[in-house]
């Protein structure tokens, strides 16, 4: 708890910098407008104007908050103007991709731990696949899958899956290998089968690793879903809001979509953290 004051100070400093930057970045436009109307602005007028422009270079926090309130609470949830609707579009792709990525990562990790050939041939490629900027393939995956007849949720989920399987593979390989030789020998003296060894020793001891990797995978999955929405022509979703906002200079819309994405990421990661605490506590590990 002793870090509450410092954190609040830093967050407060961020807001102060944000407001100051809004004045600094929006001032040229405000002066320009005033000059054309043959007026000179006093300092208070200038500041008030920079914090209330329609299409500012950097919207002030309260403008974003108002926009968020309008689009989250002020609209019907099913309306295309509602940010909740767009957030749900993105979130559904994120969750589907996350589930698929976790399943794929789990299966790969099983293969890598129990099969030496797979360990030696697949593991280096799994690692190499992450040094590749995978998101670059996103537009192509979308277009190609579209041509095969798949559109909507699944292509985005596949990109999310591609981004999220890696942390799971690495974490689970580490986790499934975490029991030491002594414990494995003990299982053998009890005449445990491989299935029993997996279910009663390896799987339980991999749980802390699984949850840590799931947090990283969830964050990556959301990024994948947002980027996956860009090439589809900005139909729906937070990525579409970003793209449409950047086309029409609607900075307030961009920022509110960003904050929404941040809230989604933070909530999802926090939920996994909660599940982690509950599960590990019941298992007597935390």
């Amino acid at each position: 708890m002793r870090s509450v004051v410092p954190v609040l100070t830093v967050v407060g400093a961020i807001f102060v910098i944000w407001y100051a930057a809004a004045v600094w970045l929006n001032a040229p436009w405000a002066r320009d407008v005033a000059a054309r109307a043959d007026r000179t602005l006093s300092v208070t007028e200038l500041v008030a104007d920079t914090w209330a422009q329609d299409k500012p270079k950097l919207p002030a926090p309260h403008q974003v908050a108002v926009e968020l309130w309008d689009t989250v609470v002020g609209q019907n949830v099913t309306s295309k103007r509602s940010l909740v609707y767009h957030a749900w579009v993105t979130l559904s792709a994120t969750l589907l991709g996350f589930a698929m990525g976790t399943a794929l990562g789990f299966v790969l990790a099983l293969g890598i731990v129990y099969n030496r050939v797979m360990d030696m041939s697949v593991m280096p490629w799994v690692i190499a696949s992450q040094t590749i900027p995978i998101l670059a393939i996103a537009p192509m995956i979308i277009v190609v899958l579209n041509a095969v007849g798949l559109s909507g949720l699944l292509p985005k989920a596949i990109i999310s899956m591609y981004l999220s399987f890696f942390p799971i593979v690495v974490g689970m390989v580490k986790g499934l290998r975490s029991p030491d030789v002594m414990m494995l020998d003990q299982m053998r003296t009890w005449n445990a089968t491989r299935v029993q060894e997996f279910l009663k020793l390896r799987l339980p001891s991999s749980m802390p690793y699984l949850f840590t990797s799931m947090k990283i995978a969830m964050a990556a999955s959301l990024v994948g879903a947002i980027v996956g929405e860009l090439p589809t022509g900005a139909v729906a979703g937070l990525g579409a809001r970003l793209l449409a906002g950047s086309y029409y200079g609607q900075t307030i819309q961009i920022w509110s979509a960003l904050i929404m994405a941040a809230v989604l990421a933070a909530t999802a990661v926090a939920l996994i953290g909660l599940a982690q605490r509950v599960v590990l506590k019941r298992m007597g590990m935390a």
Binding site: R2, S3, P6, V7, L8, T9, V10, V11, I14, L135, K215, A219, L222, V223, I226, V227, L238, L242, I254, A257, L258, A261, A262, A265, A266, V269
Partner: peptide
């Protein structure tokens, strides 16, 4: 450090690409 580290950890999990 006490202030920046939690904030930094939080921001690192956000979709900054946006």
């Amino acid at each position: 450090r006490r202030g920046l580290l939690p904030v930094g950890n939080f921001v690192a999990a956000l979709p900054i690409i946006g």
